[in-house]
Design a protein around this nucleic acid. Sequence first.
DNA 1: TAAATATATGAATAGTTGTTCATATGTTTA
DNA 2: TAAACATATGAACAACTATTCATATATTTA
Lengths: 122, 122
Amino acid sequence: MYHHETDCECCESIQVHEDLLQKVLAGMPAEEELYDLAELFKVFGDSTRIRILYALFEEEICVCDLAAALSMTQSAVSHQLRILKQAKLVRFRREGKSVLYSLADAHVKTMIAQGVEHIRED
Amino acid sequence: MYHHETDCECCESIQVHEDLLQKVLAGMPAEEELYDLAELFKVFGDSTRIRILYALFEEEICVCDLAAALSMTQSAVSHQLRILKQAKLVRFRREGKSVLYSLADAHVKTMIAQGVEHIRED
DNA sequence: TAAATATATGAATAGTTGTTCATATGTTTA
DNA sequence: TAAACATATGAACAACTATTCATATATTTA
């Protein structure tokens, strides 16, 4: 049992469940990694960016095609692509006047697949 | 090659790369699913919530221990737990005066692991 | 039942973010 | 080189969000 009536390590004692606290802090990544991790997920946390990533699932696409396919302005797409670039979720290469974007690696699909699995669960 | 000089399907033609557009839209999930997916990732997109989830990796923990371990106010933790609950990332059960929280399922760890893998890649 | 403890929640605020608009940069073509 | 096209970006604004503070709800204990 987690709490014993006469010895609540949780909230009434001055030493707030010391061993548990140690354990929690031991398994916790460094502050910077936590921050980076949150930043990464934040990038996935916008339906516009998710749509862009889905669009790139099959093949590389230029900015204006993305804009057309997703019914967005070129500027909005470009701004979002910048965020995806910074997070290293997409790559790009120039071809003539256009810039072609593609998924950076397999992680992108894997992460989205995990998310889809979760939301479809119930 | 993606663009042919004399026949740019991308941006100059009126039919904006029709077949590509079809393909992109075909692979795109329904609007509602895209929204739900973004909402899910948004929940992971905050270092406080990530820290809470990490704390729950090993065992169930009550709110005040979480607050103590993470150096947060009880209120702030409780607010975040509500969001995690709504996203079905954590479960809870009452035991006496305390409420014990734990991870909802294995997906949580898997998703975070994927994220960690990505940010550690370079 | 009253007091104490643990958790939840509404309102307010400061900080963050996505889109739009205007414009700059970069590439090709005439 | 000038014009046209494709993309990138800075500023501004509206919408959203995490925390704090005060307080409500729920459970146990005296």
